[in-house]
Computed example of a mutant assay.
Amino acid sequence: MSFVHLHTHSEFSLLDGANRLGDLVRRALHYEMPALALTDHGCMYGAWAFQKAAWKEGLKPIIGMEAYVAPGDRRDRSRGSAERNYYHLVLLARDREGYRNLVKLSSIGYTEGFYHKPRVDREVLARHSGGLIVSSACLAGEVARNLMEGRDEAARDAAQWYANVFQDRYYLEVQAHGTPGQAELNRRIFDLASDLDLPVVATNDAHFLECGDHEAHDTLLCIGLGKDKSDPDRMRYDDGLYFKGPDQMREAFPDRPDVIENTLRIGDEVDLTFDKKYHVPAFPLPEGVSTEEEYLVHLTTEGAKERYGDPLPDEVKDRMDFELGVILETGYSGYFLITWDFIRWAREQGIP
């Protein structure tokens, strides 16, 4: 049985993620994984390059984001410790609707909710919930934080709210590393999932590629935090937050094959592809002209006759036919008409 990483950070989790996109794709292929998610902190900076690199190598990309969720209104900027002003939440685009909602949520985080981090809130999550698959994230997630601080009822309420909003698309998340408290959180997550009949998914919150990259990542983290490496009170990541293989993930949850199977299920559910297209406005055509192509050929021919005479010299006609053929074949007639209209108007106004 394989496995799909659904909680993965790249270099676009600025000064926190140490994985390069190409390395992630190659490592997933090395482990014969069918898909891979990119879930950078609060942003989608790497989404286009990631999906392009993944599809090129035959790997299904899952576009996602680890969102910052405000505990109240996203616009509330009451003073307090930065980490208490948001929770983490993993969002994955299942389809085109989900991708559009993910883009919208990312933008709202920066334009309306930015306070220490780009934050969203429950109101906009409910408004833009369509097509998104959601998991409860790490120790900094809302459910996790409530569980670890003894607020079991609050954790239960939060999980039920997300399960109701993202019906059949919400998963509680367990992770396979040794961060202090993670094993206890996993146990409590399993208990909560049993109580609420919710599915559980395994991730590893991968911030670096191999276990041996931990020291380099720790240096990167210090740069991001503005801390000295010798500072005993600074944040430290466990050396297990790397891109583990399927066998390692299964070994972490030997009695719960469902948490591995659910990653594959999510990978199968995702159906999102992109077509690279250029959208050019339709050019307003004069009466009696039916297509942009016809009008471009007419203007070009008349202009050539003005410049070179009628009938056109053979070499001029051959060159004109060749260049028009390229433009017509590539569908750029409207673009050239718009450019011609700009230049015509500028000349009429005496603008060089």
Rank of each mutant, 00 (worst) to 15 (best):
G141A: 08
L299H: 07
E306G: 10
L132W: 04
L241Y: 01
F3S: 02
M65S: 05
T39N: 08
E184S: 13
E306C: 11
P232Q: 07
L21V: 07
R77M: 05
D247H: 04
I223C: 06
P313C: 06
H30D: 14
V25H: 07
P61T: 10
V69Y: 05
F253G: 15
P313D: 01
A163H: 08
I351H: 06
S78Y: 03
D205L: 10
T330Y: 15
I266D: 15
V270D: 13
D73A: 09
W345T: 11
R347Y: 14
L132C: 03
M44F: 06
P311S: 09
D233C: 07
A126D: 15
H30S: 13
G331K: 14
R188Y: 13
G130R: 14
C222F: 08
E57R: 13
E32Q: 13
P313L: 07
A163R: 01
K229N: 09
H30N: 12
G150M: 07
W48H: 13
Q160Y: 02
R236D: 02
G288K: 04
K227H: 13
A137S: 12
K276V: 13
K244A: 12
Y170T: 03
E184T: 14
T203L: 05
S107G: 05
K104A: 00
T300L: 06
K229D: 00
A304Q: 09
W48S: 10
P71A: 14
P118G: 02
P232T: 09
Q175V: 08
V69A: 03
D76I: 03
I351M: 08
A18D: 04
V326A: 08
H7W: 15
S81I: 11
G72R: 04
G245S: 10
Q167G: 00
E329S: 12
P284R: 01
K305E: 08
G80D: 11
S135D: 07
L102Y: 04
A82I: 12
K56W: 01
G267C: 05
E184D: 12
A163E: 02
D157M: 04
D152K: 13
A67T: 02
D310T: 12
M65R: 03
A176R: 00
D238R: 04
D228E: 14
G46R: 07
D73W: 00
W345L: 15
L192E: 11
L328P: 02
D152N: 15
G212L: 12
Y278G: 00
L285W: 06
A158F: 00
M320D: 00
E294R: 10
T291V: 06
I327G: 00
F50K: 00
A35W: 04
R122Y: 03
G267N: 13
